[in-house]
């Protein structure tokens, strides 16, 4: 364990992240009995590079290409009116679509569950998957909806005032997960 300059505590380092993803890749394949019909959809921002990494690992294991894409849920969020309108992230559904596929949603942190709720609604408008599964790198608890992940990189018990920051090479230059206690007066905004 180490601390970065801001005082945040590193709870997963780059190697931990890599090992977790490898394990999850195996779990997904095992659960699905192979890679057939899988479609991986990352939730922007950091769910998308995670989905691509998972797809690579699954392909390496199974020897077949796994369709991977991105699903932005901004327009489906239930908290849009609590903040100014936000820029949209890319949505990129693989050419084969999602009808009758096993869709694996990939996100970095599972917290209240509202993002995943929005993602499930968004999927409805795109097609009708046979099943939807959920992969997260970190589950920090404090669910507000009856949602759980099928595959978790690491469960990190947190208090509500703490924040969990996932760092990935694609978006931040390096891999790692930080747990940060913010300055006292800062209020936590749920994701």
């Amino acid at each position: 364990m180490s601390r970065d300059l801001s005082g945040a505590r590193e709870v997963l380092d780059g190697d931990d992240v890599a090992r977790a993803l490898t394990r999850i890749a195996h779990e997904v394949v095992e659960r699905n009995k192979g890679a057939a019909d899988l479609v991986l959809l990352g939730i922007p921002k950091r769910g998308v590079p995670l989905a691509y990494r998972l797809a690579e690992r699954i392909s390496a294991v199974e020897g077949t290409e796994v369709p991977v894409g991105a699903l932005d849920v901004t327009m489906y969020r239930d908290d849009l009116r609590l903040r100014p309108a936000r820029a949209l992230e890319h949505t990129d559904i693989p050419p084969g679509g999602i009808d009758d596929r096993i869709v694996v949603l990939v996100d970095d942190v599972l917290f209240s569950g509202r993002t995943i709720r929005a993602a499930l609604t968004a999927l409805e408008d795109i097609g009708r998957p046979r099943a939807v599964r959920l992969v997260v790198l970190v589950d920090r608890g404090h669910r507000q909806l009856p949602i759980r992940a099928d595959h978790v990189g690491k469960n990190i018990p947190t208090s509500l005032v703490e924040s969990v920051k996932v760092r990935l090479a694609e978006t931040d230059g390096h891999d790692g997960v930080l747990l940060d206690k913010p300055a006292p007066q800062t209020t936590e905004v749920l994701p």
């Binding site: 932005d72 327009m75 489906y76 849009l80 820029a87 949209l88 992230e89 890319h90 949505t91 990129d92 609604t121 409805e124 408008d125 795109i126 097609g127």
Partner: peptide, 19 residues
């Protein structure tokens, strides 16, 4: 944003967004 709106509605089962 308009680019995304185009992606989200071109060739989709449900062209409507709940936003």
């Amino acid at each position: 944003t308009a680019d995304e709106m185009a992606r989200l509605t071109e060739g989709r089962a449900v062209k409507k967004l709940p936003t």
